[in-house]
């Protein structure tokens, strides 16, 4: 007998098993407490911006390993520029992230470097530059407006921002020609090129978007933590990639959606949250995320192989 599930059921129960996880979480003391839900909302909001960017890049057939380093750079940039006001600080972070994305995109398109390697190199360069600039120490000097940005009642501002960004990304992908083009480029770059799409330009735009979002996530994180730390975000590319993959994006491009990414984000976020509640040391969390990502790409590989080319 073949069971057919509606796409929404599939999404919530199987791919990822979000509802089962939430039910299981009920047995964990304090999961449904208001305080914990707030913590959860805070933690997924910064990652959420990055997952949105990563998903868009992956839909267009790329990948972005630099998001964690760019996030750190964004936080540091914002804090450093804060004396000039909050708007210059935010603009500075966005521009810094955008430039880094532009460089990644240029390496990928003009120099035809494999996106993983190009963004790995960017990751190292951005991280190195941020560490060098801050002398590996967190930067401080925050004002109250900025710190308030890290708060918000009843919902954290960062969470609201994340929801707005997700909605905007959804509209961009589904209701604007640009999104159609991104899917086309990811599915078959050569064909997209031949139908006259500006493939290189579109890919660079994707990386710029991802960079800007990552940097802005860094700003929000700095506001929440109260410092701009140059070392945050080591795990970020992994969590973001895991969430995007769980949400249906593919390493071969042309697939993925914001709705899926949101589910993937919630799944990974809840998983980490539950582990925190259970007092699982961070080492095991690292193991879990690494193992999850490993398993995900193995499954993706097997699925791709079963599917005809």
């Amino acid at each position: 007998m073949q069971v057919t599930l509606s796409p929404l059921t599939l999404r919530l129960f199987v791919k990822p098993p979000l509802i089962p996880l939430l039910l299981l979480a009920t047995f964990v003391d304090g999961f449904w407490s208001l305080g914990n839900l707030r913590t959860l909302a805070e933690s997924i909001s910064t990652d959420g911006l990055i997952v949105a960017g990563m998903t868009i890049v992956m839909i267009a057939g790329g990948f972005d390993l630099s998001v964690g380093a760019v996030m750190a750079m964004g936080g540091v940039t914002a804090v450093v520029l804060l004396p000039f006001g909050i708007v210059p600080a935010a603009l500075g972070a966005l521009i810094a992230g955008g430039i880094s994305g532009f460089l990644s995109g240029t390496l990928v398109t003009r120099l035809r470097i494999n996106p993983f390697i190009a963004t790995l190199a960017m990751m190292v360069m951005v991280r190195g530059a941020t560490l060098a600039y801050t002398d590996t120490r967190p930067v401080v000097g925050l004002d109250d407006t900025f710190l308030a940005l890290g708060q918000g009642d009843p919902l954290p501002y960062a969470f609201l921002i994340m929801i707005v960004v997700m909605l905007a990304a959804h509209v961009l992908l589904y209701h604007r020609p640009w999104g159609r083009h991104a899917y086309a480029v990811g599915a078959d770059e050569r064909a997209a090129q031949m139908t006259g799409l500006k493939v290189n330009r579109l890919k660079i735009e994707c990386y710029m978007l991802s960079g800007a979002l990552a940097a802005f996530a860094g700003l929000l994180l700095a506001a929440r933590l109260g410092t701009g730390s140059p070392i945050v975000g080591e795990m970020t590319p992994l969590t973001a990639a895991a969430a995007a993959l769980i949400g249906g994006a593919s390493l071969r491009g042309g697939e993925g959606s914001i709705m899926g990414a949101l589910c993937g984000l919630l799944f990974v976020g809840c998983l980490i949250n539950v582990m925190n509640l259970l007092g699982v040391p961070s080492y095991y969390q690292r193991m879990t995320i690494g193992g999850l990502l490993f398993a995900l790409v193995v499954v993706e590989g097997l699925l791709q192989r079963a599917r005809p080319r």
Partner: peptide, 18 residues
């Protein structure tokens, strides 16, 4: 299995470090 080698070995990296 045909896994993407970059992402798979990054996953392995964190698995082992953890």
């Amino acid at each position: 299995a045909g896994a993407n080698s970059i992402v798979a070995t990054i996953g392995m990296q964190f698995l082992v470090i953890g």
